[in-house]
Design a protein around this nucleic acid. Structure first.
Lengths: 218, 218, 218, 218
DNA sequence: TATGAATGAGTCTTCATTCAT
DNA sequence: TATGAATGAAGACTCATTCAT
């Protein structure tokens, strides 16, 4: 997406001229869709090229191989949303419970509910065949994401709002359902009959509720 | 396979062994490994056959096609899991909290921690390319599994042990982390560096703890 | 067909015991059907065996290879009908025109209209891939057949009934339509829509009529 | 093919030649030879491609499947034959006997004696396995051909030159020997020893002679 | 830079043939 | 002699990749 911002965010060239510059971006864009939709092997480079409006040969002008394209797709789409996000939390005022709720809800809006979630599906599905991608993802996405959650939890524990948890573990408790949500959306959730089984918004809402208060009656 | 031939080369492995009864199982076994390890398309039928100690032709004697083999693998590894399990819960005595904890822990022992968990990873990764498999899995695995959890929760609510939850939703809250666990184990978890990041036993333990009591300090 | 007559025409053994002796015949029988129906390569040895009521392995007990089976089928079915037939003509009384008509009509009844005609289709279709079969067929069937016709024509010429023809050539004029008839029956004629286009009996009738009297108005 | 490379090795044949327009024709050409020579199943797509001077992959660039190629070969070699021919007969002046003779002789020159005759052999040999081809052939070749003959005969009958025949049947009498000729040429006739047994020109000549005047002495 | 025709290694699948039982 | 499970060579077809234009 929006590769032009990466390449040259300042000037908006006329369509025809911008084209050449935009090629790799358009290819990555098409590739993301196709990889998410069909997986690495079932996605055909012909179709990626076609969807990007170029010929197959052109694709190989920008990417050495299909694997290379795949890696670029993942790399490109693991946008560093975390830095800007982090700032929000530094200046966040309110309870840590609200903060957690806000984190998950806005995560859904900005990541889970966008095409970016397809990346997670992709990476997890193909991790075995692309260990370096998995590694990369771990470093660039999972770790920063976890750090963010970690900070929120630590704030809550410190303020006495949350009880004294093993934070390393607790982070997983928070993150796991979100990852599940992305996987589900792009696998079972994409199959007609079972589509409505998990409703993400409701799911997140109750998730936070249960996480904070538990299921046990008082 | 045939490690004994390697260890004991004097006992020549018979070239043509007739094991009609055993073959499908052996093939299914090898296929499960390979499919989980590499995914559907990256797995080669030659290798499945080789790992089962038969020729490629033999594989097609028992399974019409690679896809057919895939379906058989899924079917084979999920049947007969729930019926016996369900009975245990009917006769369970103790608190519903204990019941829930028992359910998740024994789930981990019997499914999550066995090769069967690879099936879930497999199905979710390939769901888009095999909608019928996804459908089948939904019906044969997800639904019965959810029903089991539903029963436990209903029991807890009825006894006043749990608060009055939207059970349909609550079921997902319980199940999601387990599915995550299987996905993780067979994707990121299988990559060296990040292997130890999530420890399943600890994860489940804390999961139950938080689910039951929440994170909020009293 | 009726291989038992070839093997042991004198004694009629009970079904079960005759079986063993009859095997090759039953196989040839089934093979003839299948080869005629589907051609050499499209015919499957499994099906031949199945149709003969034996296992595939048994087939190879009697025939070294599929090619061997094919050759045996052709050889077996090129029954020497000519010797007995020839006698009929030696004692034939009547005009040579009647003789010719009788020859063609009875040929249709005894050969053209029986499964034997399938052999011709078979041999002609596969001649390129089985030159020795073609050669064999030429010697065993075509030549004796031609000789028979030759004799009739010679008789007619000698008696002054027919005009003085180049007999070698004239024979082909007679034989060609009969061969055509067999080919047609087992190719185009076997396809639904065009089935009724050529009616053999009528065809032969007119053929003789035209051959004898010509089309030219007197 | 590329005999010039053999004759003149200094001119190195370019490895990748772009000849989009020419390819299908070259492939069809090679395929015709091979199909006629070996039959549908015995012909290998690799060899067709090789004979056309391209790689196997290229063949599948132009034809979806081997069967598709087969159909194209049949189609290619029978279109545009009859339309131009038909015109000749409309303007034909002379006796109907001459017309018939001319029809058969020129048929031999333009069809029977060219590679196109192999198509008939092909279609009749494979008719059972390709009913649609048979149907197609019936419609596109047999029917127009028959119509042509029908017209000649009708002309002759009308002018009183021929006696009053059942034209539908009479057409078959004329056509059958021609079809026989094609079958023979590409089956028995292609085998060394029996090659000269039927001489087409003589055969046609006598055929017309006999058809027109009959064999019976006046 | 862009094209798309051409390539050929690689895959699934078939089926005649073998062989332990 | 009969079986049918097992084989593996061979074939059609795919598709990422190349390269002449």
């Amino acid at each position: 997406m929006t590769t032009e911002t990466l390449i040259n965010p300042s000037e908006v060239a006329p369509k025809r001229e911008r084209r050449k510059e935009a090629r790799p971006g358009e290819l990555l864009d098409a590739a993301l869709d196709l990889f998410v939709e069909k997986g690495f092997s079932a996605a055909r480079v012909d179709e990626v090229a076609a969807r990007a409006g170029v010929s197959k040969g052109t694709l190989f002008l920008y990417f050495q191989s299909k694997e290379d394209l795949f890696k670029a797709v993942v790399r490109e789409n693991i946008a560093n949303k975390f830095p800007t996000w982090q700032e929000e939390f530094i200046t966040f005022e309110g309870s840590s419970a609200d903060m957690l709720r806000y984190a998950l809800v806005s995560w859904w809006e900005r990541i889970g509910n966008t095409r970016a979630s397809g990346i997670t599906k992709l990476v997890m599905s193909e991790a075995q065949n692309f260990p370096e991608i998995a590694e990369f993802y771990q470093e660039e996405v999972i770790k920063p994401g976890n750090a963010l959650i970690h900070r929120i939890l630590a704030r809550g524990v410190q303020s006495g709002e949350f009880r004294d948890l093993d934070l390393e573990q607790a982070v997983h408790i928070i993150v796991a359902p979100m990852i599940f949500l992305m996987m589900w959306k792009h696998s079972m959730g994409a199959c007609a009959t079972s589509a409505k089984i998990v409703d993400p918004e409701q799911f997140i809402h109750m998730q936070v509720d249960v996480l904070l208060h538990g299921m046990t009656a008082k």
